[in-house]
Amino acid sequence: MAKLVDIQGYCDPRFSAVKEMFTENFESGSEVGASFAVTLGGEYVVDIWGGYSDKAETIPWERDTITNVYSTVKVMTALCALLLIDKGQLNIDSPVADYWPEFAQAGKDKIIVRWLLNHSAGLPGFDEHPTLEDMYDWERITHLLERQKPWWEPGTQSGYHMVTFGYLVGELIRRISGKSIGTFFRDEIATPLGADFHIGLAEKHDARVAELIPPPPMESPPVEPDSIIGRTLFNSPIIPAFSDRAWRAAEIPSSNGHGNARSLAKVGSLLACQGELKGMRLLSRATIDQAITEQFNGIDLVLGAPVRWGLGFGLANENLTYLNPHAFYWGGFGGSWLEVDPDAGMCFSYVMNKLEVEPGGDKRMLALRSALLSAMQQKK
Rank of each mutant, 00 (worst) to 15 (best):
P124V: 00
L132Y: 05
G107P: 13
H161C: 08
P124R: 01
T142F: 12
A207S: 12
S177K: 05
D137K: 14
Q148D: 04
W151Y: 11
A104K: 12
A210R: 12
K108V: 08
E188M: 11
T131K: 15
D196A: 05
E128P: 01
L123H: 09
I173K: 04
H198L: 03
R174D: 03
G125E: 06
K108A: 09
K110I: 06
G159L: 07
P154W: 01
R147G: 12
I181A: 01
Q105M: 05
R208S: 05
A121R: 08
E203S: 12
I176F: 05
I112M: 13
N118Q: 08
L144P: 00
L116Q: 02
H161I: 13
P101F: 15
S180K: 04
Y160N: 02
I111Q: 09
I199E: 02
G200P: 08
E171W: 08
H198N: 08
G200M: 07
T183Y: 04
I176R: 02
M162F: 08
V113T: 14
S177W: 08
R208F: 13
A106M: 03
H161G: 11
D137W: 15
T164M: 04
A106S: 13
F185S: 04
Q105H: 10
H205C: 10
D196L: 02
R174L: 07
E171D: 09
P101H: 15
G166Q: 02
L172A: 01
Q148N: 09
E146M: 11
R114Y: 10
A104Y: 08
V169T: 02
S177N: 09
F165Q: 00
A210L: 11
I173H: 09
T164A: 01
M135C: 14
I173Y: 09
E171L: 06
H143V: 06
S158P: 00
S158V: 03
E146P: 14
V169Q: 03
K179M: 12
E171P: 00
W151G: 13
S180H: 14
W115L: 04
W115Q: 15
Y160I: 02
T156K: 14
G107Y: 03
I199C: 09
G194V: 10
R140E: 10
K149G: 01
I189E: 01
W138Y: 13
S120Y: 06
D206V: 00
L168S: 04
L145G: 05
D206Y: 15
R147I: 01
A190M: 08
L145E: 04
Y167F: 14
I141E: 11
E203V: 05
G170Y: 08
T183H: 10
A190E: 06
R175M: 07
I111G: 10
P124A: 03
H161S: 11
G159P: 15
I181D: 01
F126M: 09
I111M: 10
K179S: 10
V209R: 01
G178P: 00
K110R: 13
Y136S: 08
G159E: 03
E139Y: 07
Q157G: 03
T131L: 13
G194H: 10
N118C: 15
P150L: 14
